[in-house]
Design a binder for these strands. Structure first.
Lengths: 347, 347
DNA sequence: AAAGACGTTTCTAGCGCTGTACATTGACGG
DNA sequence: CCGTCAATGTACAGCGCTAGAAACGTCTTT
């Protein structure tokens, strides 16, 4: 390796000490200038700054981290980066992170329990100051067992260990809102899409609960045949699920979907089968991803306040980073129903 | 700070030396075990491993980085995380990264030149081993000027400095394919959506070029009125652009869209105005994001091979990381036309 | 039995930065 | 004229890990 960089292969990095020598001061003084420490004589500060500029010095963040013990990074662990809900959430998290001076490492778990476990183990590796994690397969117990020192905030409803901070929306009440909305339109045979056999996340159950509550309070009888099941969380599966129901001759005039992707699948089947939305069937989605605004018809959707989720998650995380060690806080973030064409306001 | 962790506030991290002491060996031996160095006596290895397990030791990655000079991280800088194309690309990059043992820091530039510049400066901060960057506002010159030591690979067509590696698809030929496809269906009045006034990226121009070539070779006259302009890169803007053309009475039987979002906007306007797709107008999108499969009708779309882009970018980046300092390589990645309902094969 | 040869383990100097402890200076009051 | 204090600077010991050099057996070889 040629530290002179003459051969262009290994331009030696400029270090603090190089700047110090050029400026004729100590490392600490340079460091003080870099950090805008107030008690540096103006003349010296100028001289040091000149040396920094001349050499093009940039502090080595890794070294800084080792010295300070802070990494300035947080990990965001989500099932899939390119799921619209998660990519939109990621964006809000990324923006909040920038605002608060953190960088974000994205970890894609693909809902793989092994990966989920690995993500949590990383907490201990000194890589990040904290982790925001949306678990799918790990339960409360699994998470509680890995009681690492690194702050952790959970998203979603899959697991809610007592000791861990948590941010979520009130799924029951949101599903209730969606169901009431359809009821107010006059729908009486309202379906729920969909239950998934292998679903370990609590979300679906809570949403189903809200849906049932809604029917109950309107005096509409629960009809098991109207609870559709799907094989997996994809638009395709939602499409098939609705198609099968239609084949079976199940009749319904409204659908609450646990997911925009299901809703998109539903819209497509309904459209392909010649039904009109919302004329024949009103459809409500969930997550209010940007897709909802561009389907035909546009999609009424339950809208979790993603910005608020990001902010709340960071609030909790930063308190943990600052040293809070108390019991887990469970934070409920607001939601609304974004009303569009697939289920407009009551006529 | 209480290193005993008795107060529960600052559980001391287990360090290499702690393990070494417990096992009664040197740090290096523990390190050898951790790294699976072959020449460690089985008995010792076992003893050390036991100590590691007992203490729950996990190496401090920051320290390792400082010692080795490798961070094992790469930065991915993209305009928007939640743009479907970029979120899908991110996923492929993330998976390729995992495969090759890297972690990914996501930087969202929001197409802000200041942020773009900052991202490139980070290259020098020793934070990452390399950067994969999809520039929008920075030109070749700007990028070339910041000749940092950290490896860089560019994506997209906005800037192509001679010295920098580059991965892209052949936009001209892809647009040509799309146009030919419509021509083969019998379309003769084919529109292009859309040109953006403030567009600094070369992509649109290249796509426009391919579109024009296609018309030319089919002997169809170019009609400036069929080149639609949009105010920004959103579905909404695409929608308005097509709506305005319809209002003006512009007639067309096909549209090549430079972007799936534009295509979605187009589909929506056409649908709302009572036109049938592909009956009255055939539509081709671009990027083949997952949206394309779930619109009604489904969307025929130019499909860059995102997996190949991710792989190529990493190939180039790893060569740079390994020490390659030659001129920039410009890698063309394949594409295809994913044919769906909005523009089916010729009847 | 001495000398190599080799496999195994220890020693230790960094990696670049931070922060504490300490030294120096000059201003100011008594 | 000395002591005190605040304002500035310097020196240097870590942060936890890596990796090359050196040391230490142990086993052959002569």
């Amino acid at each position: 390796m040629d530290p002179t960089g003459l051969d262009g292969t290994n331009m030696a990095r400029v270090r603090l000490i190089d700047v110090a020598e050029l400026a004729g001061v100590s490392m600490k003084t340079v460091s003080n200038v870099v950090h805008n420490y107030p008690h540096v004589a103006p003349a010296l500060r100028e001289k040091v700054q000149a040396a920094i500029d001349q050499l093009g010095y940039r502090p080595n963040l890794t070294a800084r981290r080792l010295a300070t013990g802070k990494t300035g990074m947080i990990a965001l662990a989500i099932p899939e980066i390119d799921h619209p809900y998660f990519s939109e959430l990621s964006r809000h998290i990324a923006e909040e992170a920038t605002r608060r001076g953190y960088r974000v490492i994205i970890e894609q778990t693909l809902s793989d329990p092994v990966v989920e476990r690995a993500v949590l183990s990383d907490r201990e590796a000194g890589l990040v100051d904290g982790v925001i994690f949306h678990p799918v397969r790990m339960g409360s117990l699994d998470i509680a067992k890995l009681d690492a020192a690194t702050p952790l905030v959970l998203l979603g409803e899959a697991a809610m260990p007592v000791m861990t901070d948590h941010v979520m929306i009130d799924n029951v009440s949101a599903a209730l809102d969606a169901t009431r909305h359809l009821l107010a339109r006059g729908c009486r045979r309202i379906a729920f899409l969909g239950v998934i056999a292998a679903d370990i996340t609590g979300s679906t159950n809570q949403r189903l609960l809200g849906y049932q509550q809604g029917l109950l309070e309107a005096g509409v009888e629960l009809n098991p045949e109207l609870v559709f099941t799907a094989s997996e969380f994809t638009a395709e599966a939602g499409l098939r699920s609705v198609a099968k129901a239609l084949e079976r001759g199940v009749r319904f005039d409204g659908v609450v979907c646990r997911d925009d992707r299901f809703a998109i699948g539903a819209l497509k089947t309904l459209h392909d089968s010649g039904r009109s939305v919302p004329g024949d069937v009103a459809v409500v989605g969930w997550d209010n991803t940007f897709l909802a605004a561009y389907t035909s018809p546009t999609l009424t959707s339950v809208a979790p306040r993603k910005t608020a989720i990001a902010r709340a998650a960071f609030d909790l995380l930063e308190e943990r980073i600052a040293g809070y060690r108390g019991v887990g806080r469970h934070m409920i973030v607001g939601h609304s129903l974004e009303v569009r064409e697939s289920a407009p306001l009551a006529p």
